[in-house]
Each structure stands twice: as C-alpha cells, then as structure tokens.
Write a protein that binds this DNA or RNA. Sequence first.
DNA 1: AACTCGGGGTA
DNA 2: TACCCAGAGTT
Length: 331
Amino acid sequence: MLQQTQVVTVIPYYQRFLARFPTLESLATASVEDIMPLWSGLGYYARARNLHAAAQVVITRHGGMFPETPEIIAELPGIGRSTANAIAVVCFAARVPILDGNVKRVLCRVFGIAGIPGTAALESRLWQHAEDLLPKQLPKRLPKHDLSKNMATYIQAQMDLGATLCTRSRPQCIACPLADICIAHATGRTAELPQKKSRRVAPERHATLLVIVHENRVLLETRPPVGIWGGLLSLPELPAEENAAAYVEKKFGARMLTVSPPSSRDDGFKTFLHIFTHFRLHITPLLCRVSLRPSAMEVGCFWLDLTALGTAALPTPVRRILEELRLSQPA
DNA sequence: AACTCGGGGTA
DNA sequence: TACCCAGAGTT
C-alpha cells in the first residue's frame, strides 16, 4: 500500500484491510472480488492483485512459509528490490539497503547528486551509495539478536530523516545531523536537488460514462484486469460517434426511457475533470433510465443497488457520480 | 531505458 | 497548478 502512496493516506486502508484479512492464508484463499473493494479509492490497483497473487505464491510454492532472503522475496509479485530488502531487514535481520523516495532525496542532497530521475544511471549511483552507507559492524556491547533491531532502526531512521527534516520543500537543515557533511547544504542547492522529473504536458481526453438506471439500481461492468482501473467496477463508456439510446439498446438490450444530455443540468450531472498522472480525463455522466431486460445482459455486467455503494470496488470518479445519483434519488 | 499506473497532500 | 509520495511491472 505504501508504494507511491503517502503514509497518512494508507493508514485507514491498511487498518480495514488487516481487519478483513488478518492472515496470509485468509488473503490467499479470498477472491479478487473480495479484495478490490478494500482497495477502492487507494489507486494503483495492480498492487492489490499482486498482493493477492503473492499470498498465493507463499502458500503454494513456499508451503506457507514466507521466504527470508531478499532475492527470493523479490520474486513475489509486486515486491521489487526496495520492498523486498525492507522486509528482509525488518523481519529477517538482513543487511541490505532500501531506496524509497525519502532515501533518494537524502542521498541526492548529501552527496550533491544531480541526475535525471528514473534513469538507470542515477538509480545505480543511488543504490551504490545506499549500500556503502550500511552500518558495517555492531557496537561491541549489543547482543547478536539485536542485529535486526539495529539494521531496521538504521533504515527507518534513513527514511524518517527524509520524511521529517530533509523534506522536499523547505528542509530543516538547521536541525539536521548531516548538515556539516551535506553537499547540497554547503553549496546552497537543497532546492535544486534532487532534480525534478521533466513531465510532458498531460493530454486531455474525454469520456461519456453511461449511468444506466432502473429503479434503484445502476448497470456496472468489470474492467479488464490490466490498464486503467484494472479489475475495478465501472460505468460503461459510450464510444465516440455512438448514439446513446441506440447503443444502450444494442449492447445491453435495455430500452431507453429517458436520457439526460450533457446540456441538461437538472439532474446535477455535469462534465467534470479527473486528473491522472499522465492525462486529464473530462468525464460526462449520461443518465439513462431504462426498462429492465436482464435476458439480454452482456457477460460481465450486473446491476448494483445504490444502497450498496459503500462496499463496491469503484474508482474514485465513478464513486463520486454514483453518490451524487444516490443522493438525488427519491427515497 | 522509458513509460505506465490513481489518488491525494502540499506549497 | 505542479510536484511527489515507504515503486514495480511492462514494453
């Protein structure tokens, strides 16, 4: 959950998830449909599928015993080098580095590293620094079993330095224990390091989402497992150049009763903007009240009762549309 | 080696 | 608005 997602955002999701799936076995034996609702709104939904698959791999290939070496841990789906190393350090007393966003920022500043984010050259340099910096030996008085705590404390401190003092903007160098050896601090370049990612202008896209309603239920479909909102439920999209009434009848076999065009504002449905990392999506919900014809329903589609929104695996903008619809429905 | 994947916090 | 977050998988 914490991959590319801030701690404060994750906490409530984490608590709900562990309450529902308290053991690795309970997660492994669950279905993806059981898991996605708990990830709804958190984003990067491939992480949920990977976590589910990883639990099953531990059961089937490792006999229920979680692997203990960084290399084997990193073979689990969704677990890369940094996450695998973090697990190995915290759980199994390994001596391996981690490299998250916080650590990268600290290393770039302390060593005055200017490189283009995401390039192999920079990543390689940072990994090398992180490895060189690992504590080499323990204080003599510490008993051996404290090795894990010691190494775990080190990587935790490394991340916390970036999270609390060496922050992205306005770092508190005055309180930083590394200030006297920090190249960025010495040269006044804390604002320039690490280098910012050059980002292309996000392209604009538009989608018309069909809000097909019968009585108190709305028609949803499951999105394909890969791509945007993979594995989540969503509203059917009206292909460009298609007529809504004809399309709904042809594809879903449900006769349209009324349609609200985008120009109609009475239902409160307006085009709104949803921002992704790599494009901007203008969404126009199109309210279609239909007569029910379940015999002609396509596979993968189903009716969701509007009172069951809370436990549905919906992406945020779809949830927003349906919440608005629910509130506008006559009781 | 570059691109893709979501949503939200923050300045 | 722009940037980035306890990165990993895909092409």
